[in-house]
Write a protein that binds this DNA or RNA. Structure first.
Lengths: 356, 356
DNA sequence: TCGCGCCATGCAATCGCTTACAATTTCTTC
DNA sequence: GAAGAAATTGTAAGCGATTGCATGGCGCGA
């Protein structure tokens, strides 16, 4: 007899044996599918089907399982399920930070859209740091989510490679990368800049002051503005740059410093509504009228942009639509369908209000 | 010879065999620990140890594994790891919503503290809806996180039961529940209200107007204020209530409506700094001086509370400290240590600025 | 009554790790 | 140089689900 090939020596008894020797840690008494199956007098397969394709069960069977599940309070272990089906029903959302993030509406939309279908969102907060980003993304890949949604974070070339290699559907959002990792939903930041530039030209502004964040997207917008202006004979704008997102305080201080230094702008462009809000505040303190003396433009259309005094002219991005599109892509992929347009431009909207 | 005990029949060939019969779906060609082990000429246990307790490996061995891991780009499957070790290295954070959430600093702190240790955060956005909350929490329990952090969401009695039954360490934050599910890190909202009340008494305010959110915590604060005032002979405050969090617009409109209806408050208390910000704005438009004519008080100490005009008097909660404490609890529990004080009061701070 | 096809279930082999225990090595110490 | 302790590494049994395939029961036309 070939030693030990094929049949196993002791056909496993279906009865519970005394705890077999190498018992690995586990929450003792964890309620498993076997217990439920036994209690309901069905096989584990049936219980599994009860949760994943109830329509395949006879009504009476389903009812029996249902009863036991309720009575015992059984909650299937999605880890085990994910491992064996290689569908984890998780999507990862990677963003730089939680605090007053312009991306929160996108994440919210993603979570809302997916919750019905039993999906959860894992968060990856990268900060500005490249190493953090890499580590977070590695950890995320390790969890084998069904999709990864990148917003705001800019992965290094190396990290992009790893993402590609992972084979996990990946969606970049809030931008239109020239060489997408996989799919993308966003808009052109440079186009936003150009639109702002045109608006300034229409208003006849000539002494432009830009309060800009340091990220690549803010820079792209700034570039768009500047190009449009210079190409049309307006002098090169003055610029103040801040690392990270532009806050209320940043806007206020930048304007104060610029004015104190003798600047006499007729248009102030901020890379966030927060900054614009701060700018408005500083101008009011100094008795400078908006928009009579100087126009103020923002970006983002935060909740109360229209309620400021004066209401803020800004650029609105529909973060929710971005999130919805992203999950739509993901769900299609999950169903094995191919996605034709892998890059979607959701555009933007210049909202002209009283501030400029 | 005892059948098959000890020595293995065919020392596993490192070569791929033809796909064995019942092959279940899996990303084809998924790189597994076996492949890495084979390539490095060690056992799977050694590769596993390389990731989980590298100090137990001989340096030369670790280097060999490291090399292979790098060359192949292997990323361990944390699902499988979590399943077998029953430590998922995930914590769930349950909050009502992403948008301008006062809790974001707490979540950020949780994520930051845990990231070094390879933990990830799963998000549960419950909204205000009870059913959503229940579903989200069930889905979270199914993922067997190492801990659940509840902030803001108020689970139903039924859901609390399920959480308790799950045996997963659970921490309620931003409040001090009278009957905690498990552990709690927060502060007393009523005490905050009383402190605000005292501050008003010190300032001699008598015609108080409260702009309040509808949540239980906001109500507790309102109760504290009212109690303190009434007990000291100040007339019962006028109240405007809004569902959800109080926004800039809410604050502005509430004040406008109150003034239009003939209210002549000398103190306005808002249940968020956003609301207070809106109130300030409306007052300025009407030429009402702050604090000369009316004092304005907020809650939360948002980033630019101190930069408003006038700077806002408010109550500061250190959301970061809450998050850090919560994770400290969790890590202790994970290490099997017992936690002595299961409820921690992190207190609050009344920050008196020019607005009142 | 028998044959056939369809449904509803059950069986049991994975999924990719971790870890108790056993088996080797590699020091230490005398 | 040998014995015993300590440090490394290997073996293989799970973890708790999913799902391809096999099976048994039932209805229906001939």
């Amino acid at each position: 007899m070939p030693p030990c090939s094929g049949g196993h020596p002791h056909p496993a008894h279906s009865l519970k044996k005394q705890p077999s020797k190498p018992t690995i840690a586990s929450r003792p008494g964890e309620l498993t599918i076997d217990l439920v199956a036994a209690a309901a007098g069905v096989s584990t397969a049936t219980v599994s089907r009860f949760f994943n394709s109830p329509e395949r069960l006879r009504k009476s069977t389903a009812a029996r399982v249902q009863e036991v599940v309720n009575r015992l309070g059984y909650v299937p272990n999605l880890l085990a399920g994910g491992l064996s089906s290689s569908r984890t029903r998780m999507v990862a959302a990677v963003i730089p930070t939680m605090s007053n993030s312009i991306f929160s509406s996108t994440i919210q939309a993603i979570s809302d859209t997916l919750a019905d279908q039993g999906y959860s969102v894992v968060l990856g907060l990268t900060g500005a740091n490249d190493q953090h980003t890499e580590r977070q993304i590695l950890s995320i890949i390790g969890r084998r989510p069904d999709g990864i949604i990148l917003t705001g974070a800019v992965p290094s070339a190396n990290t992009r490679m790893k993402l590609k290699a992972s084979g996990i559907p990946t969606i970049e959002t809030w931008d239109l990368p020239q060489d997408p990792i996989d799919m993308a939903v966003g808009f052109s930041h440079e186009a936003v800049g150009r639109a702002i530039g045109e608006h300034i030209l229409r208003g006849g502004g000539r002494r432009v002051f830009i309060v800009s964040a340091g990220g690549v997207r803010a820079l792209a917008r700034r570039y768009g503005v500047t190009k449009m202006l210079v190409e049309n004979g307006v002098p090169e704008p003055a610029i103040a740059t801040f690392p990270g997102i532009t806050t209320f305080g940043d806007g206020r201080r930048a304007v104060a410093a610029h004015l104190d230094a003798g600047g006499r702008p007729d248009v102030i462009v901020c890379s966030s509504d927060w900054g614009a809000h701060g700018a408005l505040d500083e101008l009011r303190r100094r008795g400078i009228r908006v928009p009579a003396d100087v126009a103020v433009l923002g970006f983002g259309d935060i909740a109360f942009a229209g309620e400021l005094d004066p209401p803020l002219t800004t650029v609105k991005i529909d973060g929710q639509v971005i999130g919805e599109n992203a999950t739509k892509f993901l769900m299609k992929r999950a169903r094995g369908q191919n996605v034709r347009h892998r890059v979607v431009d959701v555009g933007f909207e210049l909202i002209v209000r009283a501030s400029g």
